[in-house]
């Protein structure tokens, strides 16, 4: 992770030097500054696209008070990696023939990108992606979380995610009956 960070920053600095106006500066809740390509930011985030289009980008660092520096670094890192990756056919999964919602499987590098995150970093990133309207990053992070839920019993899920069971015994029984079809093979 440290290596990635260094590399990402070096790349960023070079880019800044080459084409000053092609980047935007983002400021995390704890005051750290990050540069990201304007093109990638606009393409990957609906919120940043709106800000760029609306001219509400601050050259001295656009405040993103909801996002901590670690999450913002991941966001910027993701944007850079995405800009450099070659889109593959896997982006448009073939299995479903509806054009309404093609199910986008994460690409290999995206899997690796989220796999290396700690539990908290993952959730920080989900929240950041949600806040910034980054549909693709949200897909990738949610996919990771669903992978963590798959094949687990409710008890196991509660354990992995620290979910507090606030049901009464009676309520639980009621739900199991109501949704018997969903629990038939438990």
């Amino acid at each position: 992770m440290e290596v990635d960070k260094g590399k990402g920053e070096a790349e960023e600095t070079r880019k800044v030097a080459e084409a000053d106006r092609d980047t935007v500066t983002l400021k995390s809740s704890d005051g750290k500054l990050f540069e990201v390509s304007k093109e990638a930011a606009a393409r990957l985030s609906t919120v940043l696209a709106g800000m760029i289009a609306g001219g509400s980008i601050d050259d001295n660092g656009t405040d993103l008070k909801q996002i901590g520096s670690e999450a913002l670094e991941n966001v910027v890192d993701y944007c850079n990696k995405h800009a450099n990756s070659i889109p593959s056919a896997a982006l448009i999964s073939s299995s479903i023939s509806f054009n309404t919602a093609p199910f986008k499987e994460p690409e290999e590098w995206e899997r690796k990108f989220v796999d290396r995150l700690s539990h908290d970093a993952l959730f920080d990133l989900v929240e950041a992606a949600n806040f910034l309207g980054m549909e693709r990053l949200l897909d990738v992070t949610c996919h990771k979380i669903s992978e963590m839920m798959k094949g687990k019993s409710p008890d196991q899920i509660r354990e992995v995610f620290n979910i507090k069971n606030d049901y009464t015994k009676e309520e639980l029984e009621e739900i199991r009956q109501e949704l018997a079809w969903a629990f038939y093979d438990d």
Binding site: M149, K150, P154, I157, R158, I163, K164, N165, D166, Y167, L172, I175, R176, L179, W181, A182, F183, Y184, D186
Partner: peptide, 11 residues
């Protein structure tokens, strides 16, 4: 079914 099963996690 898998989605519905999450209803049992908590309120």
């Amino acid at each position: 079914a898998a989605a519905a099963r999450t209803s049992i996690l908590s309120r």
